[in-house]
Design a protein around this nucleic acid. Structure first.
Length: 270
DNA sequence: ATGTCAGCGTTTCGCTGA
């Protein structure tokens, strides 16, 4: 069976509910993971999203910031969340598919890693310290819980562009949070030690430039194309051979009042 | 590398976070 999984930092699910619906109708992924829903759970647009053909939905939100959700065509169980860095700040949610033939038992993790503020120094910037601590806890989780021992997918806005060709200018971004050596090394270490394959780079290796985020501050984002690949789909190594395609739906960035992130979709043949 | 956003509070703009 084919299984398609999308991840999208929507930057307010209520403001962009029509864009989520349009994306679902046009792309029909089996699973959509959202970040930055910015929506308390009692205000989450559950029925509207279920009506798009996604009866199975979990969401973990809070007022104003962060928030994650998973929409699925297939039923799942064992919804759970982790509270990284001792904060209940709605940056993780996970489900296990239960009745999807070859995908039954597949675990899907959805993360929103802290952005980290502007100054790339943990001594001077508490937000950057938080980001590094978050990644350190992810690394510890990989060693302890062994999430890749069984078939698993980890997606989300990881807020790090790890490779040289994941940014428009490697040299100019070495001091910019999201591409500093301390962050890119931390992300690559936790990915490799955890036994995760980077789905996109597995089939689209460097030097192809791939981005999923373009700043709002760029007046002509498409022409300037100063993007970064902040949104990721990782697979447990036992699934790496199932990857058929991984695409960025760049056109959503050109829609009216867009998110600054575009969706990333992987298709697997299970 | 800052030119833009979104949500919140109490508002019709300043602040925070991204």
């Amino acid at each position: 069976m084919k299984l398609s999984v999308s991840t999208w930092n929507i930057n307010s699910v209520r403001l962009r509910i029509d864009q989520v619906r349009r994306f679902l109708q046009e792309q029909r992924p089996d699973i959509l993971c959202l970040q930055e829903t910015k929506c308390p759970d009692d205000k989450f647009p559950l029925k509207e999203l279920q009506a798009c053909g996604y009866p199975f939905v979990v969401h973990m939100g809070q007022k104003g910031y962060n928030g994650v959700a998973i929409l699925s065509r297939y039923p799942f169980s064992q919804t759970s969340i982790m509270e990284m860095c001792g904060r209940a700040d709605a940056r993780h949610i996970t489900v296990t598919l239960t009745q999807a033939k070859a995908a039954s038992g597949l675990v899907i993790h959805n993360f929103y890693v802290p952005a980290g503020g502007d100054i790339p120094d943990p001594e001077l910037n508490e937000k950057f310290r938080h980001k590094l601590q978050f990644m350190e806890e992810l690394r510890g989780w990989g060693g302890r819980a062994k999430p890749t021992a069984t078939p698993a997918i980890l997606v989300g806005d990881l807020n790090v562009a790890p490779l040289e060709h994941d940014v428009w200018s490697h040299k100019q971004l070495l001091d910019v949070v999201s591409h500093t050596p301390i962050e890119t090394a931390a992300l690559e270490e936790l990915r490799q030690e955890g036994g995760w394959a980077d789905a996109m780079r597995h089939i689209r290796p460097e030097p192809e430039k791939i981005y999923s985020w373009w700043s709002y501050r760029s007046p002509d984002w498409a022409a300037a194309n100063k993007g970064r690949r902040l949104d990721h789909i990782w697979l447990s190594q036992n699934l790496a051979g199932t990857i058929r395609s991984v695409e960025v739906t760049r056109e959503t960035r050109g829609w009216e009042r867009p998110s600054d992130h575009a969706p990333v979709t992987a298709v697997l043949e299970l």
